[in-house]
């Protein structure tokens, strides 16, 4: 029975995803993105059938596992566009360093303002980074890695939904600024959104995602503890 659930979970997830993708291509509405509808449909099915997430995940886990080689595969668009990236190295580094700092500080401050508990606050701080790294950071600064994984996903979904609006309102017309904000703001999902705009956008986004991951490890383990201490003990005694 559990083997049946595992296989059905894997094949079902793939089938629902492709059906959602077809709908998305046909109607071209942002809120129809498979990123939003697929999890929603599957969650409803799990709740209705009473299948626990653990049993679902024994099969669906195969897909999560593919994130590993997929991350390695990002080397290909980077390699193909290496000259372009060399030319823009300075902008990439500076804008992602600024973006990473803003991501950490704004998540922390906002989480304090709305009054979340300590575990949630620390699980939210690394939310702008790709999942495996975010989970490591969460562990290092006292958050819960599983909660962080959920927040990273939520960031990816909401970020890719909000990005086209931000791009329109701010008139970000350059592939570099579009790609960098997508990779920084919505990591992996932002990067695949960026590839919908074009290969150049996607390349900048992949690079942003990688640089953001590396910079965030450094920022959240060195500067963040000092910042947190200052805010909690001095500004809010």
């Amino acid at each position: 029975m559990s083997l049946f659930i595992a296989i059905a979970s894997l094949l079902g997830t793939i089938a629902i995803f492709y059906i959602c993708k077809m709908f998305y291509k046909k109607y071209k509405k942002e809120w129809l993105t498979p990123m939003l509808i697929t999890p929603f449909v599957i969650i409803v099915i799990l709740l209705l059938t009473g299948i626990p997430y653990k049993s679902y995940n024994t099969g669906a886990n195969v897909l999560t596992n593919l994130l590993g080689p997929a991350t390695v595969a990002f080397a290909v668009p980077i390699y193909k566009n290496v000259n372009l990236l060399k030319k823009h190295a300075f902008e990439i580094f500076v804008s992602i360093a600024v973006g990473s700092a803003v991501a950490i500080v704004s998540s922390f401050i906002m989480a304090l303002i709305v009054g979340l508990n300590d575990e949630l606050v620390h699980s939210l701080v690394p939310r702008s980074v790709t999942t495996p790294i975010a989970m490591d950071i969460s562990n290092m600064i006292g958050g819960s890695p599983t909660l962080t994984a959920v927040f990273v996903m939520t960031t990816g979904i909401l970020g890719s939904l909000l990005a086209p609006i931000v791009i329109k309102v701010c008139r970000f017309h350059r592939p570099s600024s579009r790609g960098l904000m997508l990779g920084m703001g919505a990591h992996g999902t932002g990067t695949s959104k960026a590839f919908e705009f074009g290969e150049l956008e996607g390349t900048f986004a992949s690079l942003a995602m990688i640089v953001a991951a590396l910079i965030s490890i450094v920022l959240s383990t060195t500067i963040f503890p000092v910042f947190e201490h200052l805010v909690i003990n001095i500004l809010l005694p």
């Binding site: 997830t13 793939i14 990123m35 997430y53 939210l124 979904i157």
Partner: peptide, 30 residues
């Protein structure tokens, strides 16, 4: 790539506390 993120997103079903006010606060922060 998007397909590979789906199972982790569904992990949210195990966090019942996130379905209420806490969850709305988290979404607002994000």
């Amino acid at each position: 790539l998007l397909l590979f993120f789906i199972p982790s997103a569904i992990g949210v079903v195990d966090y019942h506390a996130l379905f209420g006010v806490q969850g709305m606060k988290v979404v607002l922060v994000i």
